[in-house]
Design a protein around this nucleic acid. Structure first.
Length: 470
RNA sequence: GUCCCCAUCGUCUAGCGGUUAGGACGCGGCCCUCUCAAGGCUGAAACAGGGGUUCAAUUCCCCUUGGGGGCACCA
C-alpha cells in the first residue's frame, strides 16, 4: 500500500456562531501541524444541524480564518451536502447488523433518563431496541438508527496530548447515527467524512474526548483506519471559569476591533497551551518550524489580556511604519461613523509613526495617540491637559514663545531654544515642555515634543500654542 | 449523580528522580528621560494536601481536595 504519508488535518467548526478564541486556537494548531509537516489542512463546515446553522456564521468563520492568516487547502467542504453518503454508511451498517432501528420516542427516553437520574444510575440509553424486532405496532412509526456498539471490554483513545485514555464499553451507549427524519447525526458525519477525506490527525478541543471513544466504536464497525488524536485543553476566562459571553471578546472579530494584530493572536494562542522552552516571542515562520504535538500542555489555560497587550505592543513596534499607517487608516474607516484621513493627516501619521508605535499596545491606542495629527487648529484639552494649563503655565507659554519663534523650527534647534530658555529661567526642561505639549497635542503625554513641533511645522504649531498663551 | 481529563509564582509556562525550581506577563524599586512609552538592571512571588515507591521526590503510584469537560434524534 503506497499511501500518502503526509498528514491530512482538518478544522471542522459548526456554523452556529462566530469563530471564537478556542476554535481559533484549534484551527491554528491544525494549521501549524499541517504546515510543519508539509501536509494538508482542510476546512469542513459541520452544518448538519439545519436549525442552528446560518450562512452568516459561515461567513464569520471564513472571515475569521482569513484574518488569522490560516489558509486552508482546497475548497471548503460542507458536511450537509454529503448527507446521502452518510446515510449510505448507516444503511450498510444496518445491513451488516452493526446498527439497528430504535423506535423509542423522545418522551420515552426523557422518562428513562429521569428515572435513571432519580435512582442515581448513569444516564445512558439502555439498549431497549438493541435486540428487539419491531412488531406490527411499529409499522410506519418513526425510528432512529443506532450503532450496535460493543458492550464488553474497553475502548482506548490513544491521544497525543492526554496519553492513553480508557473507557469501559459499558459506559458508552448505542449512539444515534440517523435521526428519525433520516438525517445523519454529527457522530456519523464526522467519522464518515474524516474517513472519506483521508484525515490522519484529529486535533480538536478536549470537549470531544468522550466523543472520541464513541467514534472509535463506529470506526471499528466501519473497518476504517483510526486517526491520531490530539485533544486540546480548553481555554477559560481570566477568572478560570468557562469562557463565555460574560468575558466578552469571544469572537476573533472582536479582537480585531479591539486593535489586536493577527500575528499577535497567532503568537499568543500558540503559547496558550504549547511551549518551546523559554521562548515567548515566536514568529509564525518560527512556529511552523518548531510546532509539534508533543509539547502541547495538558491543563486548561486562562486568557490573560495583559499579556496579550504586551505581545501586541511588541508586534506593533516590529511592524513597518507604512503597514501601520495602512492598518490605522483601515481601522478608522471601520469606526462608526467611519473616519477618513486626508493626505496631510496620512503624511503626518507616516512621519510620526516611528515614535507613535513605540507607545501603543493596540491599534486603538495607536489611533488615539495620533489624534492630534489628524486635524488642524487649536486642540481641545483633555482633563489632565486642562489641569496643567493653569494661568501660570499659560503665562510661561507666552514667555517661551519668542525663543521658539527665533529658531528655524528644526527639532534640535527647538529643543536647544527651549533648554536655553529653561536654563535662563532656572527651570527644568520638563516645566517648559509640558505646557507646550498640552497646547500642541491637547494631552499631557505624546511622542517627543520637539519632533512633533517640527513635524507639524511652524505655522500650525504656533496657532496651537498661541491659542493657550496667557 | 456518573464517566473522563487536569493540578509548578496572581497568569502563561520550563522542568521529564539529585536544580540556588528557570523564563515571560503583571506588580515593586533603580537607571535612562521633555511627558508617556520603550529599553536596561533589580526585588517580591509557586511545586494544593496526605500517604506510599526510592538512597533521593516538583518529577513515579494511590487517595483527598479543587477546577474543567462529557452524559441529546446539538455539534
Amino acid at each position: 500500500m503506497a499511501e500518502n504519508t503526509k498528514p491530512v488535518l482538518r478544522f471542522a467548526p459548526s456554523p452556529t456562531g462566530m469563530l471564537h478564541i478556542g476554535g481559533a486556537r484549534t484551527a491554528l494548531f491544525n494549521w501549524l501541524y499541517a504546515r510543519h509537516t508539509g501536509g494538508t489542512f482542510l476546512l469542513r463546515i459541520e452544518d448538519t444541524d439545519r436549525e442552528r446553522s446560518t450562512p452568516e456564521a459561515v461567513d464569520a468563520i471564513l472571515a475569521g480564518m482569513r484574518w488569522m492568516g490560516l489558509n486552508w487547502d482546497g475548497e471548503v467542504i460542507f458536511q450537509f451536502a454529503r448527507a446521502t453518503r452518510h446515510r449510505e454508511v448507516a444503511e450498510k451498517l444496518l445491513a451488516e447488523d452493526k446498527a439497528y432501528r430504535c423506535y423509542a420516542t423522545a418522551e420515552e427516553l426523557t422518562q428513562m433518563r429521569e428515572e435513571q437520574k432519580a435512582t442515581g444510575k448513569p444516564m445512558r440509553y439502555d439498549g431497549r431496541w438493541r435486540d428487539r424486532h419491531p412488531g406490527p405496532e411499529q409499522q410506519g412509526k418513526p425510528f432512529v438508527v443506532r450503532l450496535k456498539a460493543r458492550q464488553d471490554g474497553e475502548t482506548i483513545v490513544h491521544d497525543m496530548v492526554l496519553g492513553h485514555v480508557r473507557f469501559e464499553n459499558t459506559q458508552l451507549d448505542d449512539m444515534v447515527l440517523l435521526r428519525s427524519d433520516g438525517t445523519p447525526t454529527y457522530m456519523l458525519a464526522v467519522v464518515v467524512d474524516d474517513f472519506d477525506m483521508g484525515i490522519t490527525h484529529v486535533i480538536r478541543g478536549a470537549d470531544h474526548l468522550n466523543n472520541a471513544a464513541r467514534q472509535l466504536q463506529l470506526i471499528e464497525a466501519m473497518g476504517a483506519p483510526v486517526p491520531v488524536y490530539g485533544h486540546l485543553p480548553l481555554i477559560n476566562g481570566p477568572d478560570g471559569a468557562k469562557l463565555s459571553k460574560r468575558h466578552g471578546a469571544l469572537a476573533v472579530g472582536a479582537y480585531r476591533d479591539m486593535g489586536y494584530l493577527p500575528e499577535t493572536m497567532r503568537n499568543y494562542l500558540l503559547r496558550l497551551g504549547w511551549s518551546h522552552g523559554d521562548d515567548e516571542i515566536i514568529s509564525t515562520a518560527q512556529a511552523i518550524e518548531w510546532f509539534n504535538l508533543d509539547s502541547i500542555g495538558k491543563s486548561a489555560a486562562r486568557m490573560d489580556y495583559k499579556k496579550l497587550d504586551n505581545l501586541n505592543g511588541h508586534y506593533i513596534r516590529e511592524s513597518a511604519d507604512a503597514t501601520l499607517v495602512a492598518e490605522v487608516t483601515e481601522f478608522l474607516s471601520r469606526e462608526t461613523p467611519p473616519r477618513v484621513l486626508g493626505t496631510t493627516a496620512r503624511a503626518r501619521l507616516q512621519a510620526a509613526m516611528p515614535s507613535l508605535k513605540e507607545r501603543a499596545k493596540t491599534l486603538v491606542e495607536l489611533s488615539q495617540g495620533a489624534e492630534f495629527l489628524f486635524t488642524d487648529g487649536p486642540r481641545a484639552l483633555d482633563e489632565a491637559a486642562a489641569k496643567l494649563l493653569m494661568p501660570q503655565a499659560r503665562a510661561l507659554l507666552a514667555e517661551t514663545l519668542p525663543a521658539l519663534e527665533a529658531t528655524d523650527w528644526g527639532a534640535s534647534d527647538l529643543e536647544a531654544a527651549a533648554r536655553g530658555f529653561a536654563d535662563a529661567k532656572g527651570l527644568k526642561l520638563g516645566q517648559v515642555a509640558q505646557p507646550l505639549r498640552a497646547a500642541l497635542t491637547g494631552k499631557t503625554s505624546s511622542p517627543p515634543l520637539f519632533e512633533m513641533l517640527a513635524l507639524l511645522g511652524r505655522e500650525e504649531s504656533l496657532i496651537r500654542i498661541r491659542a493657550y498663551r496667557g
